[in-house]
Design a protein around this nucleic acid. Structure first.
Length: 309
DNA sequence: GACACGTGGAT
DNA sequence: TATCCAAGTGT
């Protein structure tokens, strides 16, 4: 049998996880979380697995402050997957309002439908089944399994990548996407006990969200300040290439947003001319509309357009 | 693996 | 005002 570099890495991580400092990290952050956690509706004891799932989808690339009211409204209207599945997908898109990335709303509706069809209306409690649902990827599947069902899984989002990159690896930032190595690196930090691991997972995320932030970390408030490898190395700046800055104004995404806003606001199909009025560049407008049609976010009927019924 | 995909809070 | 970037997923 060949001993690969990968198995060396895993072995050294296993050894590292037995190190006192490594073990102390989860306990320390969890203790900090117990004293400092924000009171978010989807974290309360009464929150259902469906509520947790909805919150995780809404939180994808979207700030907590914008999600809170949207989640409340959504859960009152569609308290279970069956409630959502019973309404047309266009209603989910309309209710999504300005949360952004409306494909998430369409997929959440498809997700509810799949839960009703494949799981008797109950959110599944295993990562494999969750991963098979529309709009549920590496992060969200594990987040739901951990936070709704109190299981032990590495829950790795941008916050956790950053916290671990800094505290453990001594780097300024985590990668742009979660890799299998990231999952492994976080997994070895988790306590063996399932409930304790689930609590450590929220705690890591919370620390990254409110203290170990991307722009101006509040290291004075950080429970890991004494052991943080990045801090101990003098907080070196990021070394890799700077990520490309994303423009929005005037992009296809922007035009898609303009078109969707018109369609959301209308209870009746919208004539093509009304859409023509939102943006002067006809080429770009057509490209945006074609994309929306291809994505299933918009339906055409003759010369009118509407959200999918 | 890079890229597309919305919208707005924070600085 | 401009720029960063926010609990990612799917292609």
């Amino acid at each position: 049998m060949t001993v690969t570099a990968y198995s060396f890495t895993v072995l050294s991580l296993r050894i590292a996880s037995n190190d006192n400092t490594q073990i102390a990290i989860a306990a320390t952050v969890t203790r900090w979380y117990d004293a400092n956690a924000r009171d978010l509706a989807w974290r309360r004891p009464g929150a259902s697995p469906w509520g947790v799932l909805v919150s995780e989808v809404m939180l994808q690339q979207t700030q907590v402050s914008r999600v809170e009211p949207a989640w409340q409204t959504w859960m009152e209207r569609w308290p279970t997957p069956a409630h959502l599945a019973a309404d047309p997908p266009g209603e989910a898109i309309r209710a999504w309002d300005r949360l952004g990335y409306p494909r998430r709303a369409l997929r959440l509706h498809a997700c509810a439908t799949a839960i009703v069809e494949r799981h008797d209306g109950e959110v599944p409690d295993d990562v494999e089944a969750l991963l098979a649902l529309p709009g549920i990827g590496t992060y969200t599947a594990r987040a739901v399994a951990a936070f709704a069902f109190r299981q032990r899984h590495p829950v790795v989002d941008t916050n956790v990548r950053r916290v671990v990159a800094r505290a453990v690896a001594g780097e300024a930032d985590g990668g742009a996407n979660t890799t299998p190595a990231d999952l492994r690196a976080v997994e070895v930090l988790l306590p063996e006990d399932e409930e304790a691991a689930a609590r450590a997972s929220v705690a890591f995320m919370e620390l990254g969200a409110v203290v170990c932030t991307a722009r101006a970390p509040r290291c004075e408030e950080c429970p890991l300040t004494a052991v943080c490898a990045w801090r101990l190395a003098g907080s070196p700046p990021p070394d890799g290439p700077a990520r490309r800055s994303q423009r929005y104004h005037g992009t296809d995404r922007y035009v898609r947003g303009l078109l969707m806003a018109v369609l959301r606001a209308s209870d009746t199909p919208v004539p093509a001319e009304r859409l023509d009025a939102v943006w002067p560049d006809a080429d770009q407008r057509h490209r945006a509309l074609a994309g929306l049609l291809a994505d299933g976010l918009v339906r055409r009927r003759e010369e009118t357009y509407a959200l999918p019924g």
